[in-house]
Design a protein around this nucleic acid. Structure first.
Lengths: 266, 266
DNA sequence: AAGTGGTCTAGACCACAAA
DNA sequence: TTGTGGTCTAGACCACTTG
């Protein structure tokens, strides 16, 4: 049977009290980045609770990005993220301002000057993950934005890899007349470069937008993060030289990993 | 004792199999927004697992934003979010372009034309949450960006309320010479408006940036969301007419609630 | 082999909301 | 009062990593 219920001060659950206690040890430096936390059995003894209760606290700290759990090894205080700033200058880039253009597009592609990582940046590559029919909420958004029927679109999913690690998950909705981009990708390495150099398109932005989501199963698997991790989303519509919309793109990045910066003036 | 271990296909945990099964029922429309899910005991019977296992699945779906759990009542398929688009036009606003200025600042303040909610927008208000010493990671960032010692700064925390609901959590780092803004806030309602109209400052952007974080305990409480919810962050430095940096601000919004849009060209 | 985290069970008691 | 979700326990077995 259950046990004598412990008095809970202020109705705050035990696991939350343990989590905030550990959180404060991290905030005030009692536990430092890289430090190994006591094991779950040890914490259970220290706080005089069941191991499952202490585990609930630790998993919450993991979701907050405060600790990193390594199966079979232990739990460690998380290190500050390896932040990459993707910088754009405002006023808007002319269509031929490649550096700014690429920076806003969210890839480097030879313009590493606009990427300011805290560690040296290695090569970014983009690999195809899937080519599928357009459908669902974003497929319908794409059809609306591009002014074509849903059936005239296809979806291209890719993953950008930086320093060997999955960095950005991209989904493009293209009109079928651009299906050639899939074949041509190998030559130019990146989708935007392929459109520009391979297919000769002169691209410019219609709009770009920023939002945030919790990683779903698909995104979590591709980015190798826990389900529900906070992701930064940058979606938008790109047009050709005549101003006609060409494709809709939706990029998802680990929120603690990258930052889009808009600099104003000179 | 434990039971005969169930065969786990492909090593996928039971709770994950249940979660993805329910996820698909939601995606394919078997369960529709607003529908009530079967109760935890019912699901436990259906899937022939312990209630705690089914609960682990449901909580995961809650973190994905797929369901909404109402204590004492039941669990419901989440409705599409009440999205507000905050729109700015590029090239950059002149300092006197109030509408665009306010849109980028992330508040309405009489320029509701630039806010396009899916439902009618009610009044936005900003209330003071706390005034504290500057410290920590962002305090140090602010001191660096503003070029003043940490001790010369103070921090102002506010919450913007829209339609009666907490919408944006703001943290401002100001030089102490601007402490008057706290007293003057009541008259003008919003911090930026107070700086402009009350203190006569002519403000413009140095930079703005977008990132994403998981809601910590403080943010989760103020926004009334679960700990770890994905938040969109927009931080930046604002300068005076002479181009000298004045303050650093960091705004956090529910990621499923708002979207910053940059429109290019006319 | 030993220790770590990951999953699952059975059972209990609680807080909350609606009837 | 009934049923819902929220928390907690004791115990078990598992997968993984490191000596």
């Amino acid at each position: 049977m259950g046990h004598a219920p412990r008095t809970r001060q202020g109705g705050i659950p035990l696991y939350r009290r343990i989590a905030t206690e550990l959180w404060e040890r991290i905030q005030n430096g009692t536990l430092r980045p890289g430090d190994r936390m006591p094991s779950e059995p040890e914490l259970a003894t220290e706080f005089e609770v069941n191991r499952l209760t202490v585990r609930q606290a630790i998993v919450e700290l993991q979701r907050l990005g405060a600790v990193e759990i390594r199966r079979g090894t232990g739990t460690f205080v998380a290190a500050p993220p390896d932040l990459v700033e993707i910088i754009a200058r405002i006023p808007a880039p002319a269509p031929d301002d490649d550096a700014t253009h690429a920076a806003l597009a969210g890839h480097s592609d030879g313009v590493v000057e606009t990427l300011l990582p805290t560690r040296p940046l290695l090569r970014v590559e983009e690999r195809i993950e899937a080519v599928t029919e357009a459908s669902g909420r974003y497929g319908e958004l794409a059809a609306r934005e591009l002014g074509v029927p849903l059936a005239d679109l296809f979806r291209l999913d890719t993953v950008m890899v930086r320093s060997g690690q999955a960095w950005i998950v991209n989904s493009y909705w293209f009109p079928r007349r651009l299906e050639g981009v899939v074949e041509a990708l190998g030559e130019h390495g990146m989708v935007i470069a392929t459109l520009r150099d391979g297919l000769g398109l002169d691209l410019s932005y219609r709009w770009r937008a920023f939002s945030a989501v919790a990683a779903d199963y698909h995104e979590a698997r591709l980015l190798d993060v826990p389900t529900g991790t906070a992701l930064l989303v940058r979606d938008g519509v790109t047009a050709d030289a005549a101003g006609a919309p060409v494709f809709y793109v939706r990029r998802r990045l680990r929120g603690d990993n990258a930052k889009f910066v808009l600099r104003y003036g000179a």
